[in-house]
Design a binder for these strands. Structure first.
Length: 505
RNA sequence: GGGCCUGUAGCUUAGUCGGCAGAGCGACGGACUCUUAAUCCGUAGGCCAAGGGUUCAAAUCCCUUCAGGCCCGCCA
């Protein structure tokens, strides 16, 4: 695979054009109309040319030469429209210029009048055109288009040029994020940006990416979550905050995971995890309704019903229902035997009832939860940032939302007891030192922040990529990420590290 | 990390009982003044992902590597 796709015959055409004095890459074009506007405005047009002149621009997709006339399909962000060019009207020079030098893939501007062809298609009768950008790479085939999954991910721009479905998916993604912001702004949440480069990472259990700041000569981590910084803002007095954050986790890649992914985290003072479940429910059903126009969303063979209220059950209830065991009624030894019997993975290191509860839930419950379901009350062992349960010993006030077997959200009554937080992070740090690569570091400044007093606070994080998957019906996260992480295929001549081959800029 | 599958022209692909690598679209040249997967005539384009092996002979069989997809493990 070569690193450039330039087509020699197209390069030749470009040179010819320059020799003929044509500006191949002009600076501007007065576009007065978009394709969508034209189609709408002239939806009732007949076979006679419109009196009104239109001026629009876009990419040529198909050219159908027809002797002394040419038909071409041109598309912009709104859609495609047909162009009609006649030698009589354009004059020999312009007509031959188009015929010889304008190809599928080129971007042109046209001025003309609108009419409807005998076959009934709204068409621009072109009076003059201007080349706006010459394409030197061949476009994929007009009929089958670009299907190769790898190329679609690696050259997303080409996917977007060729596949309307893909374009629609990302339009929807943009809309979801915009609606989410709007929803939160309308309710007086403030949006902030907190550090992506962090000296101490925290807020989740995950392996980080590590980097280095040269001037500070200091190790920095790419954030795995914005959580600890957003809670500092609540300490500071911002009572309703959120961030739409890119998080980075150094983990394997699959249909539900990308090393960098987007998450919205929301914190609100004087709220608890029950309130955050309500908020999550409200946001997601609002988005489903706005984006799909319905409370029911088809996904992977299921009809997901976002109608409120959603099912809520405690993790113990979930394990009882799906695993058939009451964890509290058994000793740790009995739980271990039960785990072995049912082939529950990851039990080697489990020593407490709480750890078994989580393992059983993951083994028996998680994949069964298709319709939106909150699972609440998690054992304290795995929830170092969640507040101890107000009544249940050994538990925290934490919930997760599952839809289509995927974890969609995670929230809790935030731990605001600085002494408890210190103890829990010390426990995490001890685990980390024993080799648990996902355990958290101690962020003393964060503990100090809590030391100044954080009001009772509810928080939740919602995975945006997975949400977009649900609402667009895509079963791979790569389909909803514009540029999913891929292994580098070919290193071009400039692909190496700077300064290694002496060709510094 | 384990299993299954895929990689052939710019794109979409046929060919995998081993026997000259084919097509459609696209490109290039020509004809055509309402076509729309335009049509018609002609031309060029392939290290069959890369490397090694078996064989008289390999796109095809075997091994290794690379990249991708799906499933599992790990993981929010």
């Amino acid at each position: 695979m070569d690193h450039l796709c330039f087509d020699p015959t197209k390069i030749d055409k470009l040179q010819d054009l320059r020799e003929r004095g044509v500006t191949v890459y002009p600076y501007t074009f007065e576009r007065r109309d978009t394709v969508g506007e034209i189609k709408e405005r002239f939806s009732g047009i007949g076979h006679e040319k419109s009196a009104e002149e239109v001026s629009t621009a876009g990419r040529i997709y198909v050219v159908r030469e027809h002797g002394k006339t040419i038909f071409a399909d041109m598309g912009d962000a709104d859609g495609r429209i047909q162009l009609y060019l006649r030698k009589n009207d354009l004059g020999d020079e312009q007509f031959d210029l188009f015929r010889q030098y304008v190809d599928a893939g080129d971007i042109i501007g046209v001025v003309g009048h609108v009419f409807r062809t005998k076959m009934g298609e709204i068409t621009i009768w072109v009076d003059r055109f201007e080349l706006l950008a010459k394409s030197v790479c061949p476009l994929p085939e007009k009929f089958h288009g670009l299907k190769n999954v790898e190329t679609r991910y690696r050259q997303r721009y080409l996917d977007l040029i060729m596949n309307e479905e893909s374009r629609e998916t990302f339009r929807t993604r943009s809309r979801i994020i915009s609606l989410l912001r709007q929803f939160l702004f309308e309710r007086d949440y403030l949006e902030f940006e907190t550090p992506t480069l962090q000296p101490v990472y925290g807020g989740a259990n995950a392996r980080p990416f590590t980097t280095h700041h040269n001037a500070l000569d200091q190790k920095l981590y790419l954030r795995i979550a914005p959580e600890l910084y957003l809670k500092r803002l609540v300490v500071g007095g911002f009572e309703k905050v959120f961030e739409i954050a890119k998080n980075f986790r150094n983990e394997d890649i699959d249909t539900n995971h990308n090393p960098e992914f987007s998450m919205v985290e929301i914190y609100e003072a004087y709220r608890d995890y029950n309130d955050m479940m309500d908020l999550t429910e409200e946001i997601l059903s609002y988005l489903a309704e706005k984006v799909r126009g319905s409370a029911t969303v088809p996904f992977a063979g299921h009809d997901l019903d976002f109608t409120r209220p959603w099912r809520r059950l405690s993790m113990e209830e979930a394990v009882q229902e799906y695993g058939g065991i009451d964890v509290r009624a058994h000793t740790v030894e009995e739980l271990r035997a039960f785990a072995r019997e049912h082939g529950v993975e990851g039990c080697e290191s489990a020593t407490t009832r709480g750890e078994y509860l989580v393992l059983f839930f993951e083994h028996f419950g998680e994949k069964q939860l298709i319709q939106p379901t909150f699972v609440y009350d998690f054992p304290i062992e795995n929830s170092p940032l969640a507040k101890k349960h107000r009544t249940k010993e050994g538990m925290t006030e934490r919930f997760e939302l599952f839809i289509a077997g995927m974890e969609m959200a995670n929230g809790f009554s935030e731990l605001n007891d600085p002494l408890d937080q210190k103890a829990r992070l010390e426990l995490q740090d001890a685990r980390r030192r024993r080799g648990d690569l996902e355990a958290q570091m101690i962020d003393y400044d964060f503990i100090n922040a809590l030391g100044y007093g954080m009001p009772p606070t509810g928080g939740v994080g919602i995975g945006i990529d997975r949400l977009v998957m649900l609402l667009t019906g895509k079963d791979s996260i790569k389909e909803v990420l514009l540029f999913p992480q891929m292994k580098t295929a070919v290193v071009g001549p400039n692909g190496g590290e700077p300064g290694q081959d002496g060709s510094e800029e």
